[in-house]
């Protein structure tokens, strides 16, 4: 378990992991932690100041900002993880198939990926959401559709690289079947390459989901979501500017945590890169 040891010695990584875990736990147990109902409006207490009852105040409909932030984790962060999971699943499946079996199936999958990759992903997401209509599920679908081709290609090139290794050839000579080689020899190697990219990309997906929600293309009205909360704060900016601090900071912190964690994982998993950085420093 040298991996965990090295990860633990990296202070930045430990802080990032704890931040992410705490945020996820808060999101999962939001119904228990949150002091108020995030959707029910109480007009008589709108724009309440920070108090014990409302730790972060209330918004323009008298809803507790802290509760909305906590429930927002469920939509923003959990959905981003779901998106990444689905992307990785599709990418690994097709990438391993293409890289392991090669031949015509490799050609078909890769040329299809080339077609998708030749188009800028940001515009593609907008196009898919535009065609399907504004909704949270459509945003997730669009994000998966825009990303899977890239992952398939990365995983395929990683698989091809490992296929030349002697231990894989040896297993083939021994007569191991394809599923055994893929499960026992290929996947553990490929996963460590891909996990870095996936961690770095999770932050990007969070920004994307909340950005689209900010435009009103993602989450629809009463559901709490960070980008959505910023959009509501925009309309009352002149009178209550403090409203836009909490959701913005929440997005910033979680995105930075994922990105620093990705950087640290790369340092831990790739000793070569580490040496290079030591030289550069």
């Amino acid at each position: 378990m040298i991996f965990w040891k090295r990860l633990k010695s990296d202070k930045v990584a430990v802080i990032c992991i704890s931040v992410i875990i705490v945020v996820l736990l808060l999101g999962i147990f939001a119904p228990l932690v949150a002091p108020h109902n995030p959707i029910e409006p109480h007009i008589n207490v709108k724009f309440a100041n920070i108090s014990l009852d409302y730790p972060l105040g209330t918004d323009h409909l008298g809803r507790c900002v802290l509760s909305r932030l906590l429930y927002g984790i469920q939509t923003t962060v959990v959905l981003a993880l779901v998106t990444m999971g689905a992307t990785l699943l599709i990418g690994t499946l097709l990438g391993v198939i293409a890289g392991y079996f090669r031949g015509w199936i490799d050609e078909v999958i890769m040329r299809f990926c080339d077609v998708l990759l030749s188009f800028p992903s940001e515009v593609m997401i907008l196009a898919i959401v535009g065609m399907l209509g504004p909704s949270l599920t459509h945003v997730v679908i669009a994000n998966i559709a825009a990303k899977w081709a890239w992952y398939t290609r990365m995983i395929r090139s990683s698989v091809v690289q490992y296929m030349d290794k002697n231990y894989i050839r040896f297993s083939k000579v021994l007569g191991c079947n394809a599923s055994h080689i893929i499960r026992k020899h290929l996947l553990p190697n490929v996963v460590s390459d891909i996990i870095v990219l996936a961690t770095l990309d999770t932050g990007w997906v969070i920004l994307n989901i909340s950005g689209l929600s900010f435009l009103g293309l993602g989450v629809q009205a009463p559901t709490p979501e960070w980008g959505m909360m910023l959009n509501e704060a925009k309309n009352i900016m002149t009178t209550h500017p403090a409203q836009m601090l909490a959701p913005g900071l929440a997005i910033l912190i979680i995105v930075i945590a994922f990105n620093f964690l990705g950087d640290s994982l790369r340092d831990v998993l790739d000793p070569k890169y580490n040496q290079h950085r030591a030289v550069a420093k």
Binding site: G203, L207, S210, L230, G248
Partner: peptide, 13 residues
Amino acid sequence: IIPIFMPNFWVGL
């Protein structure tokens, strides 16, 4: 790194 990950809709506001 902070400017990279500031969501631009927030920065704008």
